[in-house]
Amino acid sequence: MTEFSTESLPIVNRILKQYPEGKQKSALLPLLHIAQAENQGWLSAETMDYVASLLKIQPIEVYEVASFYSMFNLQPVGNCVIEVCQTGPCWLNGAEELLAYFTDRLGIKAGETTPDGKFTLKTVECLAACGNAPVIQVGTEYFENVSKMKAEELLNKWQLENKISHTNPYL
């Protein structure tokens, strides 16, 4: 990514106006979400430097923030990142078995990407949907009460349509 796309620019400009004069650094998290989406789902140094220049802050101020938050990927990811919740309430309702299903079917461990670059599997902590456990997230979408059968259906669908999970979350 070298700059924000023409669809994203109006959103970026709207966001920049939300904060008082001189406090535009507040836009960092929203802008990183958009930048990541437009850079194949991860934040390269080049992408972060671009955001730093836009906000007129030092690149290090962006790196230290990007590395703090778990939604930001600092390494390349697959087209479709599947995030499986592992915390207590999901575990009580079969999250471990669900994760095992994904690792089996995709032939990768959590944290890895399939060789064809289509899928990345990630474990995440509580997604705040515990009443419908187990829960997974793909892009901005939640999938709840995910049985193995439902997981199978979803995976087949994503495989067919070449699912891309990194889309501008504001659009």
Binding site: Q18, L32, H33, Y69
Partner: peptide
């Protein structure tokens, strides 16, 4: 009053 939404990015 102006009211805005601000997203976090994954941090309890």
């Amino acid at each position: 009053l102006d009211l805005y939404c601000q997203p976090g990015a994954g941090a309890y």
